[in-house]
Amino acid sequence: MLGLQALFFYIFAFVSIAAALMVVFSRNPVHSVLFLILTFVSAAGLFLLTGAEFLALILIVVYVGAVAILFLFVVMMLDLDTTGLRQRAQQYAPIGAIIGVVLLAELIIGVTGTYYQPHLATATALPTPPLAAMSNIQALGAVLYTRYILFFQLAGLVLFVAMIGAIVLTLRHKENVKRQSIARQVARTPATAIEIRRVESGKGI
């Protein structure tokens, strides 16, 4: 099935590059985000072709299903002025170009580094178990929760701190606002909520 795999590789690769270009060039910011989603999905397809099925679906669940939705959410709410955005984008183009070049250089070094320094690969990477012997998830879990448990937990802690920080920064308790306390409402009984008075006629309460 190698021919078919190559065909799908070219389809996914072409779509992801074309969509990535459209992210930059489309006039409407919402369209940009929609093309970004298309890029993510085709990247997931590329993962799938290399046999990393778990990573592919996690990419879809996390990036497409959660992160990109928040992007879309924010961009739709902002109602951006696109003409001003174009001008500023040209202002920032040199910085973007520098970041792009640095990223490209890093990628080239990362991919080809082990070719020039073969001992690096054996020093860092664990041997990859064959796909037939162990499923993606088992292989990933066996490494992530044993050898790299500290890094895994630290990454979780960083995210946790970020989440709490965001809540602390935005949470304000106003004094004069009536709040609904579900526990108190549920705990009310006729005995605590109702008072029965015997009203004599013509006197009022």
């Binding site: 099925e53 679906l57 497409v64 739709m76």
Partner: peptide, 20 residues
Amino acid sequence: INIGILYVFAISSLEVYGVI
């Protein structure tokens, strides 16, 4: 497929896009 439930979860997490 081996990761069927994850596939269902992933695709159904995309269904919100139609609505948005």
